[in-house]
Amino acid sequence: MNLKGLPFKKSAKFLTLLLTSILIASVSAAVYYSLGMTSTISTATTDVWFVKGVDNATAGVSLSPDNTTALLTDLKAYPNASFTYVDPIRVRNNHTSNSYSVRLSPVSLSGNDTEFVFVKFMLRNGTSDDNATLATLWYNCSGSDWTVPSATSWVSMPADTEWAITVQTKAVDSAASASVDIEIAVDVQ
């Protein structure tokens, strides 16, 4: 088709349509491209949470409504004697088929740093004293300062399993009344 031979009216009409076509095609392509960039984020329920252990009353355990945070308020450290809370709180993998990797990691520490010897958090491969310790978060006190441990290595937790977090404490000989607040996290991936 010879476009040069087209009458002016027809050329103008064609040019107008061509311009509007380019415009519509461009903006449509831009909208399609922006659709490809859209992300859909939806809420999900957790599969791993805390459960009270058999020693929860002794340790003063209270759980948040969604069982994702726990507060242990009645833990004691006795002078020159190790005291163990074998099963105050548990970590539960509630998924029916998926295993998850978990670890213990320190978050914060505040309070007295002279009256304690250590505080240990041990993740057990079960819920009794006989079960092996899989990971330990060991807070040591030198008498003047706390040594904050680094996060433990990841441990694979099978589906539908409960593991106890054992807490062990010790205070110095003839310890005066004192308290320390330790916050730890159970990381899940």
């Binding site: 027809k10 009409k13 064609f14 349509l17 061509l18 076509s21």
Partner: peptide
């Protein structure tokens, strides 16, 4: 649209 314009 463009083709029908050319063959109007």
């Amino acid at each position: 649209s463009l083709l029908t314009c050319l063959l109007d």
